[in-house]
Nucleic acid binder design. Structure first.
Lengths: 82, 82
DNA sequence: TTCATATTTGCCATATTTGACAAGTTTAAT
DNA sequence: ATTAAACTTGTCAAATATGGCAAATATGAA
């Protein structure tokens, strides 16, 4: 729960996205194709890798493409117990 | 559910933050005081008003100060049904 | 109203995200 | 090993988030 470092938060969120994406059988290119607003595999990759501190609207667009609630992507509590 | 505009997403997230903050009886100044990393009431105000597309780490810091899961702040589905 | 506190807004400087493209790397199959 | 698809990473420019301060406005109590 408590006080994760920035890098750790970003890494967990990236892992969430990647996990959900793979569960749904999407490639990064698939995602880009599904997102109405513009986004790039470059950016998706950086977010999945936890290298970028994405804005909430970018994460929202990704959640739309993944067909899950934004809050699912932002769930940092389960991963934390690993 | 579907395809909210950026401004709408930001507004709902801001409302979530403000609602939770008031429920807990915190002022913006209280929040700033509780956040270890640096943040400003200026920024909190802008986020609560939906004027800024905050990064996920900023929202994480706010969620820590509010003592709620990040995912609660990022819940855009309930508000949507208003 | 007056006063104090809280919030909002404008402005600035700095840092970083984002989109874009290209190049490099990984992965998996044959 | 070769090939193709998927992913990563570097760099760039433009847009914007952030922190900071100050001023304006709002809120609420006395």
């Amino acid at each position: 729960m408590a006080n994760m470092k920035k890098s750790e938060v970003l890494k967990i969120i990236g892992q969430n996205i990647k996990r959900i994406r793979l569960e749904k059988g999407f490639t990064q290119v698939d995602l880009v194709g599904k997102i109405e607003a513009r986004i790039d595999t470059t950016n998706i990759s950086r977010i999945e890798k936890g290298r970028t501190n994405a804005t909430i609207h970018t994460l929202y667009k990704i959640s739309q493409a993944l067909e899950v609630p934004l809050s699912e992507i932002c769930d940092v509590y389960f991963s934390e117990r690993v």
